[in-house]
Design a binder for these strands. Sequence first.
RNA 1: GCAGACGUAGCUCAGUUGGUUAGAGCGUCGGAUUGUGGCUCCGAAGGUCGGUGGUUCGAAUCCACUCGUCUGUACCA
Length: 551
Amino acid sequence: MAKKPNKLKARLPRGFVDRSADDIRAADEMIGKIRAVYEQYGFDPVETPAFEYTDCLGKFLPDTDRPNAGVFSVQDDDEQWMSLRYDLTAPLARHVSENINEIQLPYRTYRAGWVFRNEKPGPGRFRQFMQFDADTVGAPGVQADAEMCMMMADTMEALGIPRGQYVIRVNNRKVLDGVLEAIGLGGEENAERRLTVLRAIDKLDKFGPEGVRLLLGDGRKDDSGDFTKGAGLDDDTANILVETIAFEEEVEPQIGYDSWDCPNPYYMPPSEWSEDLRESKPRIGEINRANSPRDTHPFWNYLGTLAAFYELNSTTISALAELELIVDLIIESGYSDRIKIDPSVVRGLEYYTGPVYEAELLFDVTNEKGDVVQFGSVGGGGRYDGLVKRFTGRDVPATGFSIGVSRLMTALKNLGKLQTSEVVAPVLVTVMDGDTQALGRYQKMVQELRRAGIRAEMYQGNWKKFGNQLKYADRRNCPIAIIQGSDEFEAGEIQVKDLIEGKRLSEEITDNVTWRESRPAQMTVKRDALVETVRALLDSQADDRAQAAKA
RNA sequence: GCAGACGUAGCUCAGUUGGUUAGAGCGUCGGAUUGUGGCUCCGAAGGUCGGUGGUUCGAAUCCACUCGUCUGUACCA
C-alpha cells in the first residue's frame, strides 16, 4: 500500500506560469487592442527570435567571458554563447543593423513577444513575460519621443484604463547628468556614486522624498529591518537634489510674482544674479530660451526651478531644451493631463541616452490576499542613440518603449478589471447509443452545427453513463445539449435541452424524481430543425446575458 | 543576494506543555438514480505533516541545516 517514494513530482519552475484559457483569451484581446493603436500610429510589425548571440545582447560580465547571471544562457555546438532575449530592444537593434541597407529610415516598427529574465520573481514579475514593443529607428528629434509618450497614453486608454488612473512620466537623462555634474559628481572617479544616486532618485515613487533623502545620505532601513547603505552625500546636497526631483511636493509654487524682467537663466545663471534679484524669487517658470512669455503651466515651473537651482552647464541646457520641446508638443497636442514631467524617472542605467518615459498605474494593486503590493511601472522606454551604432558604426538614433503585457494583465486581473472575454462553450451532442450508425448520426449533427458557425462537440467520454454527459456539459458551461436516443431517432426527432434555463429551474425543484422526470427546459423538435432551433436558442440566451449585464 | 513570515489531504485550515492509528469543511470518485445536470442521503479514495539530520522512551510539535512559497529590500539590461 505504501506509495513509491520516488514518484516524480510535477512542478513548475519558479517565476514561470501556465496560462489558462481565460488568461490566453484576455491577453490576446489586450494584444489586439495594443496592436490597433500602434498600427493607427503607422507602425509595422517585425519579429525576431527568442535567442540571440550573447555578445549581440551586450550581456557579458565585464571581466569574464561568461554571460551575466541575469540572462538565461546556453552554449551552442561551436561553444558560442547564446542567450534568451531579456527585452525586445536589443534584438531590434541587431535586426536593424543587419538589414540597415534595406530598411527605410525612419523605421517605425512594433512587435509582441516573450522575454526572459533570470531574476527573483515578484508580484507581476515573472521570469518569462510578454512585452509589446514599439520603436522609431533613425529619428533624432525629440518629437519622436513625444509621440511615443502619446502613443503610450493612447494605449493605456485603449486597454480600458481610464484617464486619471494612469500617468506617463517623462524625464531626460541628461537633466540628471547635468545636475549631478553641477553638484560635483561629474567625472570618471564619481561613476560609482552617480549610480548610487541615480538608484536612490529612482526610488522616489516608492519611498517618497524622505526615503530618498536617507538613501542619498547615510542609508535607509526597510520594513523587515534590512539596511541599505546610502550614497553618503552631505545634507545640503541631498536636500537640493530631493527638492529637484520632488519639486511638486517640496517646492512652493512660485506664482503671484510678476518678475518677467528677470534674466533668462539659460543665458545668465542664477549664481550671477544680484542679491535683490534672488530675493524677489522671480517667476522663473515662465522663462524660456526665446525669452518670450508663455501660458502658466507647472511644467515650466519645474524647468525654471531647475534652472534656478543649479549653475547651468551645457549638458543641463541641452537637456532642458529637449524637455521644453517635448513639453510644448504634449501641451499642444492636448496630452498634458496624461503625461507629466517627472525628474525622478531614471529607468535602466545601461543604454538610454536622452528622454526616458514610463507608464504607471495610479490605483493600488492588490494580491490574491487583498494586500496592497509594490507594483512597478507597467511600461517604459526611452531614447537609445548608441545601440545601433555598436554594430554599424553609423549614428542611428532611436527611441521606443515596451508595454509589460504580463505585468499589466496581472494588475488588471487582481483588480477584477480584466474583461473576461465571453466565449460561449460548445453545444454538446450527447451519445445515447454507441453503435457505428448512431455515432455517425451524432457526428453529422456536430458537423452541421459547426458548418453553421456554431461551436459544437460530440461527447468523447464514456457514453454509457448518460448522467455523466450532462454533468460534463454542466461543468463546461455548455449552453445546450442535444439528445437523440433510439426513440427519438425512430420518430425523426431530437431533444434540445437548454442547460442555462434548466439550471435556473433547478433552484425551484428540490425533489430529485421530479427534477429528472420533468426534464426541465427541454424540447422535442424534428431532426431537420437542429440548426435553426439551436441558433434561435443561442440568440435568446445571448439576449438574456445582455439584459443581465445591463441590469 | 540580504531580512522577516510561513510550509499539515487536490483547496482552505484545525491539531492542547512533545504522548495511541494526524482531523474537519470544501472538492474528487462510487452508490441511492443502468435515458437526464441541481438538491439530499450513504460510502470510498486521498498524507513519508516540504526534505535531511539531531534531541527524546516517544516529534507534525523542540534544535540545526536544506528546499519551497509569500512580503520587504538589493539588483533589474
